[in-house]
Computed example of a mutant assay.
Amino acid sequence: MKISQLVGPRTSEVVDVADPVPGERQVLVEVVASGVCTSDIGPWLARDPAAGPLRLGHEIVGRVVDTGRDAGRWRPGDLVTGLGGEGFATLAVMDADAVLPVPPGIEPAHAIGEPVADLEEALSRTGIRPGHRVSVVGLGFMGLGLVQLAKRHAPGLLVGVDPDPARRERALALGADLAFAPDELPEEYRADTGRRGEGRMDIVLEATGRTAGLATAASMARPFGTLCVVGYHHSGDAPMDMDLWYKAVTIVNGFCPDRTRLMTAMSTALRLVAERRFSYAPLVTHRFALHEVDRAFAAMEAAGPDFVKGVLLP
Rank of each mutant, 00 (worst) to 15 (best):
G310A: 14
A289I: 06
F88A: 13
V7I: 10
A265V: 09
A176I: 02
L178W: 15
D97R: 07
G42C: 03
G304N: 01
G113S: 07
G304L: 06
S34V: 05
H234G: 04
L214P: 02
D183C: 02
D48L: 03
V14R: 06
S235L: 02
I128L: 00
V17T: 04
V293M: 10
D241V: 08
V137R: 00
I106D: 12
V137Y: 09
P115L: 14
D258A: 10
A18D: 08
A218K: 11
G113T: 02
L290D: 06
A299G: 05
D192T: 15
D78F: 07
A303N: 13
A191S: 15
V61F: 02
V252I: 05
L244T: 08
C256M: 00
T268E: 12
G304W: 05
A51I: 14
D177S: 05
I41F: 09
I128R: 10
V61W: 04
T285A: 11
S267W: 10
F224E: 14
A51Q: 12
G145H: 03
Y246G: 08
L172P: 11
E13N: 14
R55F: 15
H132S: 11
R168P: 11
A269Q: 02
V161P: 01
R168V: 11
V134M: 07
D66K: 10
G156E: 06
A111S: 01
P108A: 00
D177P: 00
L146G: 03
D294W: 04
V32L: 03
V61T: 10
P108S: 00
A173L: 07
M242L: 11
H233N: 06
P165K: 01
A154I: 04
T226I: 00
V14T: 11
P103A: 11
E86V: 12
P101W: 08
E107S: 07
A51L: 15
R196Q: 15
M266N: 05
I106A: 09
K309V: 09
S235M: 08
A173P: 07
V80A: 08
M1L: 07
E301L: 14
L157M: 12
